[in-house]
Write a protein that binds this DNA or RNA. Sequence first.
DNA 1: TATTGTTATACTCTATAACTATA
DNA 2: TATAGTTATAGAGTATAACAATA
Lengths: 153, 153
Amino acid sequence: MKVHVAQPKLCAAEILETVPLLMSVLRAHSRSASSPELSIPQFRALAFVGRNQGGMLCDVASFLGLTPPSASKLIDGLVAKRLLLRYAGTTDRRSISLSLTAAGRKIYERAVQSAEKFLADHLSQLAPSVLEEMRHSLEVLRSIFQPLEVRKS
Amino acid sequence: MKVHVAQPKLCAAEILETVPLLMSVLRAHSRSASSPELSIPQFRALAFVGRNQGGMLCDVASFLGLTPPSASKLIDGLVAKRLLLRYAGTTDRRSISLSLTAAGRKIYERAVQSAEKFLADHLSQLAPSVLEEMRHSLEVLRSIFQPLEVRKS
DNA sequence: TATTGTTATACTCTATAACTATA
DNA sequence: TATAGTTATAGAGTATAACAATA
């Protein structure tokens, strides 16, 4: 009985320990390894634009959990590196649309490969049942905390 | 069969999506909520020192996955805020020892409470079996990626 | 007037390189 | 010479406040 009350707190404590740890592991890998040209936020921005070609800046900001100025600056850097294109919307000229360049897509895909290989190498020691539990647990966490879906055009 | 090959990659992809998302959720909460005085790295540093009173700076750096200069600067800020004490080691005067002040412990505990409550509120909708799977999965991840244990004094 | 985005400013996080002090 | 830590410097990530342009 009491355990049911405690469970969310125990899980919360585990999240608080594990998530920042994994984040620093990911950051350290992405800096040192084969994809040092992208930081994690830059990587996420490219991922979002790749899935939402023509998406607006406010969509990127909400997906990344950033304020508009922070998102604007992040996008600035990616445009300067020729990984993203930014152009004014046609119907509403206040909004901007974003899309990947060929170089952006290539670098993004290389970074995904590198990070997935790095993680998968560490996970390969685990039993299939454990991996499946883990994948499911993370999916549940993501669905709980992910910002609301972005409207298409 | 093939699924067994794919599993680590699937899990890796899920980590890559979910961990940065959770990190930005945690950061946003810690800024806005009842514990805006601590950033996540500061929070982690206090947690480490709380569990390793008298620990050395290089231990903090390795726990946090930081270079020594980065850790030194982080500790600087916490010492300036009177949350940590820093003093030279007795046997080896090159090393420094760290400990929590009363204020440091108090602010750390308040931040833990706030973050755990925030997370637990979102998790309380989940079934006990799902929570237990999640806690276990995170624990496994942590054990895989955590830096080696720190020697005691 | 409300919305979309940018500019100005400031602070934290993080790194590398060069340094000091101690062993 | 090797180790523990700091200082100097630089760049990215993030925020708030103030602004410009469009609707």
